[in-house]
Computed example of a mutant assay.
Amino acid sequence: MEVAASAGLSAETLRKIETGRAPTPAFFTVSALAVALGLSLDEVAQTCVLVPLAPV
């Protein structure tokens, strides 16, 4: 996987993120993927879906 290698991640880590098995990747991981894909963190944030917290 070219994107994973470019971001300095293993293909398995990227696969886990893509399939939801790693639902909350670390900030460094998100940042590295953004750089590898030519995106700014602002662009990434604009496309994120906020999930409301469950009531306590």
Rank of each mutant, 00 (worst) to 15 (best):
M1A: 09
M1V: 13
E2A: 02
E2G: 07
E2P: 05
V3F: 06
V3E: 00
V3P: 02
A4R: 01
A4D: 00
A5Y: 10
A5W: 09
A5I: 11
S6V: 11
A7L: 04
G8C: 06
G8S: 05
L9E: 00
L9V: 03
S10N: 02
S10D: 04
S10I: 03
S10L: 01
A11N: 10
A11Q: 11
E12V: 12
T13P: 12
L14F: 02
L14P: 01
L14G: 01
R15H: 08
R15S: 09
R15T: 07
R15I: 02
K16Y: 00
I17A: 02
E18Q: 14
E18A: 14
E18P: 12
T19H: 07
G20S: 12
G20R: 11
G20Y: 10
G20I: 10
G20K: 10
G20N: 08
G20T: 12
R21W: 13
R21S: 15
R21V: 14
A22R: 02
A22M: 05
A22I: 00
A22P: 06
A22T: 10
A22D: 07
A22S: 10
A22Q: 06
P23D: 06
P23G: 09
P23Q: 05
P23R: 12
P23C: 10
T24A: 12
T24L: 11
P25C: 04
P25K: 06
P25F: 03
A26D: 07
A26C: 09
F27R: 03
F27Q: 01
F27G: 05
T29C: 04
T29S: 04
V30S: 00
V30F: 04
S31L: 03
S31N: 06
S31A: 10
S31Q: 07
A32V: 06
A32C: 10
L33A: 00
L33V: 01
L33C: 00
A34P: 14
V35E: 06
V35G: 01
A36C: 11
A36Y: 10
A36R: 04
A36G: 09
A36L: 08
A36K: 04
A36P: 12
L37Q: 10
L37P: 07
L37G: 03
L37D: 00
G38V: 05
G38I: 08
L39N: 05
L39I: 02
L39T: 05
S40R: 13
S40W: 12
S40Y: 13
S40H: 13
L41D: 06
L41S: 09
L41Y: 07
D42C: 08
D42G: 13
D42N: 12
E43P: 11
E43H: 09
E43D: 11
V44S: 06
V44T: 11
V44H: 04
A45G: 15
A45D: 15
Q46S: 09
Q46L: 05
T47I: 15
T47G: 15
T47Y: 14
C48P: 05
C48R: 07
C48E: 08
C48K: 04
C48D: 02
C48Y: 02
C48I: 08
C48Q: 04
L50K: 13
L50E: 10
L50M: 12
V51F: 08
V51C: 08
V51Y: 09
V51S: 09
P52S: 00
P52R: 00
L53T: 15
L53K: 15
L53E: 14
A54L: 14
P55G: 07
V56I: 15
V56D: 13
